[in-house]
Simulated scan of single mutants.
Amino acid sequence: MSNVDIKRQAIRSHIAGLIARLENWVRDQKKFMDELQKYGDYISSQDRLSLLFSAQAMLYYIERTLKDFESWLNNPMITSIMPIEMLKELEERLRDIAIEFVKLDVDHTSKYVDILKKMESENEIPDILRLYIEQRGIVAQRSQQEEQGEFPRFM
Rank of each mutant, 00 (worst) to 15 (best):
Asn3Cys: 04
Asn3Thr: 09
Asn3Ser: 11
Val4Phe: 09
Ile6Thr: 14
Ala10Trp: 12
Ile11Val: 13
Ile11Trp: 10
Arg12Glu: 13
Ser13Asn: 12
Ser13Ile: 09
His14Phe: 15
Ala16Asn: 08
Gly17Cys: 01
Leu18Pro: 02
Ile19Val: 12
Leu22Ile: 07
Leu22Val: 05
Leu22Glu: 03
Glu23Met: 05
Glu23Leu: 07
Trp25Gln: 12
Val26Ile: 12
Val26Gln: 07
Asp28Cys: 01
Gln29Val: 15
Lys30Gly: 01
Lys30Ala: 04
Asp34Arg: 08
Asp34His: 10
Gln37Thr: 15
Gln37Ile: 14
Tyr39Phe: 07
Gly40Trp: 00
Gly40Asp: 00
Tyr42Cys: 05
Tyr42His: 13
Ile43Pro: 01
Ser44Asn: 10
Asp47Cys: 03
Arg48Ile: 13
Leu49Ser: 08
Leu49Asn: 06
Ser50Glu: 11
Ser54Ala: 10
Ala55Phe: 08
Gln56Leu: 14
Ala57Asn: 13
Ala57His: 12
Met58Ala: 04
Leu59Asn: 11
Tyr60His: 08
Tyr60Gln: 11
Tyr60Lys: 13
Tyr61Asn: 09
Tyr61Gly: 03
Ile62Glu: 09
Arg64Leu: 10
Thr65Pro: 02
Thr65Leu: 13
Thr65His: 14
Leu66Arg: 08
Leu66Trp: 04
Lys67Ala: 12
Asp68Met: 08
Glu70Ala: 10
Trp72Arg: 04
Asn74Ile: 02
Asn74Tyr: 06
Asn75Tyr: 05
Pro76Phe: 10
Met77Ile: 08
Ser80Leu: 10
Ile81Asp: 00
Met82Pro: 01
Ile84Leu: 15
Met86Cys: 08
Met86Ser: 10
Leu87Met: 12
Lys88Thr: 15
Glu89Ser: 11
Glu89Gly: 11
Ile97Glu: 10
Ala98Asp: 15
Ala98Lys: 13
Ala98Ser: 12
Ile99Phe: 03
Ile99Asn: 01
Ile99Leu: 04
Glu100Tyr: 07
Glu100Leu: 06
Val106His: 03
Val106Glu: 08
Val106Ile: 15
Val106Ser: 04
His108Tyr: 05
Thr109Gln: 06
Thr109Pro: 03
Thr109Asn: 05
Thr109Glu: 05
Asp114Gly: 14
Asp114Gln: 14
Asp114Phe: 04
Ile115Phe: 03
Ile115Lys: 02
Leu116Met: 04
Leu116Asn: 01
Lys117Arg: 12
Lys117Asn: 09
Lys118Val: 02
Ser121Gln: 09
Ser121Ile: 03
Glu122Ile: 02
Asn123Met: 04
Asn123Glu: 13
Glu124Pro: 00
Ile125Ser: 02
Pro126Met: 03
Pro126Ile: 02
Asp127Pro: 00
Ile128Trp: 10
Leu131Pro: 03
Tyr132Phe: 15
Ile133Glu: 01
Ile133Arg: 01
Glu134Ala: 08
Arg136Gly: 13
Gly137Val: 07
Ile138Asp: 05
Ile138Thr: 06
Val139Gly: 05
Ala140Ile: 07
Ala140Lys: 14
Gln141Tyr: 04
Gln141Leu: 11
Gln141Met: 11
Arg142Glu: 10
Ser143Gln: 15
Gln144Arg: 14
Gln144Trp: 04
Gln144Tyr: 05
Gln145Pro: 01
Glu146Gln: 12
Glu146Leu: 08
Glu147Pro: 06
Glu147Ile: 08
Gln148Cys: 06
Gln148Arg: 13
Phe151His: 05
Pro152Glu: 02
Arg153Ser: 03
